[in-house]
Structures are given as C-alpha cells and as structure tokens.
Design a protein around this nucleic acid. Structure first.
Lengths: 212, 212
DNA sequence: TTTTGATTTAAACAAATGATTAAATCAATT
DNA sequence: AATTGATTTAATCATTTGTTTAAATCAAAA
C-alpha cells in the first residue's frame, strides 16, 4: 500500500507496463522546472504523464515528495559538474575556469530553465548550502590564493570571483525569458550566443584577473 | 461602489483615516517582492497591512490588480535608471557604465529581492520587452559601435555586452538567497561585497572590452 | 443632529486543489 | 483457470483561496 519511490527502482519485480513511474517523474521534471512549484498542479502532472491522479499519489504519496525528487536531481547535476572539476589537482587554474564554463553552458543549453528553477524555489535550504562550500573549500580556491600571492593575478575577493564566473555563465539563462520575450531572440540565436560566450567568458575572466 | 485605484489618489476627498490604501500597497509590495505572486495570499496582505480582506477588495477589486501595480512600480524603477543614463549624449562610454552599475547597486541594496521578483514572475510580458529595447536602441549602443569601429575596444556582440554589465551587477542579488543561506554571508557582509563590486565592475568591463 | 463615506465584522460562495478511497480492469505469472 | 499486482475510473473529502455581500460602526462634514 505504501510505496517509497527509492526502493521501487530496485524492487520493481513485476511488469510496470509502460514505466508509469518514470513517466510521472519525467512529467514532473518538465512542468516543475518550467513553471515552478506553485504553478504546477498535480492534475497537470498526471495529464502530462498520461496517467491519472490516483496513480501519482499511489507512487509518490504527495506533490512535495515528487518535487523534492526533482530538486535533488537538479542540484545533483550542478554538484557533479563542480565536484568533478574543482578539486582536480592536475589541471591549471585557467583550464578549470574553461571547463567550468563549458560544462555549465553545455548542460544548461539542454536544460535552460534549470537555474531559475533552482534559484527561485525557496524549498531548498539543505541542498544549496553545499554548493557554496564545495566552491570555497576547493583546491581551485587554493590555486587562486597561490596565484594571488605569487602576483600572477590581482587580489580579488574569492566570493566575488565565484560570482563573476557563475554570473557570467548562468545569468543569461536566468534572464533568458526577459530577453527572448516579444521581439527578442529565437531559441537558436540564444544558443548560438551562448556558444560564443563559452569561448569568451574564460578570456574575460583572465582579463579581469589582471585588473588591480 | 466600484473603485478604480488610479482615480482614488486624486478623488480621495474625505478622510481615509490612516491611509488604508497606502498601507495595502505597502504590504503587497513587501510580500509580493519577497515571496512572489502565488505564494502570497490576499489574506496575508490584509493582515500585513493591518486592515481586513473586504477592504482590500473594495479598493483594488482583485489580487491580480494589486500585483500589477507593484510590478509596474518595480519595472518603472528599472526603467528610470536606464533611461536617465543610457541616452545622455554628454557622458562618455566609461562614465555610463560606471553610472549604470552604481545606480543599480544603490537601488538594489535597498530592494534586494526586486530582481528575482521581476525575473521569476511570468506575468510581465508587456513591460519587459521595453527594457531590451531601451538598451539596444540607445545612444549608449551607438557609442559602443563607434568605439569598436575606431578600434578602441574589441568587437563584441552588443547583447553579450549588455548581459555582462547587467549580469555582473544583478546576478549577485538574484542568487543572494543561495549564497546567504545557512553558514553564508550576513546581510551586512553582502552589502559590503556589493559596494566593493560597485568600484570593480566598471574596471572589469573595461578590461573585458580589450580582449580580442 | 443628520448625513455621508470610510472601515469593519462576520459570513458565505464558488472554484481550485491535494489527497484518498473502493471497486473495476487488465495483463502477466503461477 | 486462478492469482497477483499494476493501473484505471470515478467519486468524494477537506482545505485553501479569491471574491462578494450585507449589515454594523465610526468619525467628520453639513
């Protein structure tokens, strides 16, 4: 009677005719990411998934539950990118910046609504603390402090540097709807613009790091 | 019986004991800007304003009406800043960038939730198109194109330049809650950081504008 | 004092919405 | 064929929420 979705993935011993559970999560991801928690109704999710309201609650118990799954998923992707890059002791500072920017733009080009979703949904709290920690406690930050001491780059507040890298990369996606609306950019033109920025942002950051 | 709030401000011939209308708008501004449209209930607004639900609807007819007023107010402030600076034919390119950054940070330090509010509430449409137009059709843009032709600054996509200026300035406010949560920055430390950025962002932009 | 308009009170409405239930159906397994 | 578990159907609940109403109160103007 009482299903806990984590176990389901493993336990699911019988049919699950057409993977109803997956269809629900897919629909929830699409709608939540696009419209946010409040604007999405459980009935919308059921409809989008092509199943019915009862089954949604049968699997996931509640809307909040389902939302939590999507939120973890999204935050997880953000984390993966950072974790994989930021503590690699083999790569240079420049290479790390390049990789951070490229990886984020790559992911976000496919999931352009993700950043605004993560930022604007208050129900996170636990997850988001980690992101800051990951960044500021990383080998990447050590490299920066070393470079500053060695006089290779200008003194800069680590938080400000983080804001610059993340801001230049992610802000366009956050503000995307504002720029695209009405007479604005097409989806393709926007992606092109971001591909261009993928090359430029690391250069811009380097130039900024030389400013006294 | 049927009040239209625009006229009210002029018509209001009698008492309005303690300015109930203003108290409602103030409460609405605070709550909407802080939590967004869906999360705020008309009952919350009435409570915050210290008046009752009936009066709210007596004055403003509907929640949407009230929201529209706040949205216009907020967008208006954004516009004022841009309009006042961007078409001034007396000031240099550098001065304009400096003023844009300084003015935005000044306003947003007092209204830190404004950007996320504007960006994340879909119900704008009409308003936001103007922002883009204001920017791209401005004397500011002409100056940039001239400077590019003259070889004084590197070639850059105008949209990208706009994203850089606005992004570096506004993104910290958009992402503010993510950075401040838990063990993060205090309100004061955040404002200090932004004061520092007020000086640095124009320098950073200049440095970026020299990158080939 | 009467009148008038601002404000309150309390109640109610209708619609939307998250959640639950019980019985039916359907498809694969035994 | 009988069983079992997944899924559907349809109905219902309880709550929240935007909005409205009607009658009362209150304070100033006439």
């Amino acid at each position: 009677m009482c299903h806990i979705s984590n176990e389901m993935a493993l336990v699911k011993n019988k049919k699950t005719k057409d993977g109803a559970e997956k269809k629900i999560v897919d629909a929830a991801r699409k709608l939540f990411t696009e419209k946010g928690y409040d604007a999405v109704k459980t009935r919308d999710i059921a409809k989008e998934a092509g199943i019915n309201l009862a089954l949604l609650n049968y699997y996931f118990r509640s809307k909040e539950n389902l939302f939590e799954i999507i939120m973890k998923e999204n935050m997880g992707r953000f984390m993966e990118v950072i974790t994989g890059i930021v503590n690699n002791e083999e790569t240079s500072l420049e290479k790390k910046i390049e990789m951070l920017v490229a990886n984020y733009i790559e992911i976000l080009s496919v999931n352009p609504d993700m950043p605004l979703f993560v930022i604007s949904n208050a129900k996170i709290d636990d997850h988001r603390m980690k992101l800051r920690e990951k960044f500021l406690g990383s080998y990447f930050m050590k490299q920066i402090q070393q470079a500053m001491k060695a006089g290779k780059i200008a003194d800069i507040n680590p938080a400000s540097l983080m804001l610059n890298i993340v801001g230049l990369t992610i802000f366009p996606f956050v503000a995307r709807r504002m720029f695209q609306s009405s007479n604005g950019l097409t989806h393709e033109a926007f992606n092109e613009l971001m591909q261009e920025r993928k090359k430029m942002i690391p250069k811009w950051i380097e130039a900024m790091l030389k400013v006294k």
